[in-house]
Amino acid sequence: MDISTKKSDAPPSSPLPADLSAAEQKRAARGATRPGDRVFLGLSRGSGIFLLVIMAAIAVFLTYRSVIAISKNESNFLTTFEWNPTAAEPSFGIAVLAYGTVVSSIIAMVIAVPIAVGIALFITHYAPRRLGGAISFVIDLLAAVPSIVYGLWGALVLAPHLVGLYGWLDDYFGWTGILEWQGGAPRSLFTVGILLAIMILPIITSVSREVFRQAPQMHQEAALALGATRWEVIRMSVIPFGRSGVISASMLGLGRALGETMAVATVLSPNFKIEASLLDPNGGTFAQNIASKFSEASEMGRDALIASGLVLFIITLLVNGAARAIIARRAEYSGANA
């Protein structure tokens, strides 16, 4: 067979010992003289490089079009409160979008993180094993629902159901100004925040669940042996162990909330201004603004939208990078598949 013919010229190069220096490894890898090996190595390395090229290209092309747009902008890109890229004197800024994006994401995080941590604890420490498995499965399915369906549900089911809550908040907390409501359709940043919370719940839950599951059994048993209640075990041994994991999980969720497009575009009735009230429709988000303004945008308008998209890209890059850095410090798990 062909194995016997190839035996003679097979160099024992492939299972590389880990302690070889990089240069030696490179030589050894190249030492694979067969054309098949070289082609295969080239192909797979090329794919890796292709991925890097795409990332670089995204940054370069977005920056290029953004520079075109910003150079024509007559007002400050960061602090302007309007979006008129097609006017004779183009004037557009991301202040309102940044406000809306940050506010809706904060609302989403405030709602989602405690609930997600609760569910993760429920699955790992409270529920019977069978039930825990079933719930994990259901939560994973929740992650698979397309965002446009969330949007449709949010606009046609969730928003009408929130009228009562809005009225209640306005009655009792309207004096704060933040929760004042004029009585319009409840399609505000607050509703968007609730919807985003539902959408990012699965990823935060599944990453937290993995961390909590890895909490050292010995610590927990030691705490139990000292007479701790179940809650004390969790507070003393599980949560300190999982804190960094929960933080990075939350940041992964934050990254999704910041970039969510269609659900926000469907639910929010945008209004290009900043007001104190979260319940009245005002503000917008980066992604929502791009989706809503795109169809009627001219070339200049598209470049302006690309400029705002670049800002979103940088923000999500920073948030995700930070989350990954925290995860990388504990290399045992990864949330990328979640």
């Binding site: 990332m55 970039g259 890209f313 999500t316 989350a323």
Partner: peptide, 12 residues
């Protein structure tokens, strides 16, 4: 960058 790429919003 694969990790970073998983976080790219679809609109970007």
């Amino acid at each position: 960058f694969v990790d970073v790429m998983t976080g790219i919003p679809s609109i970007v």
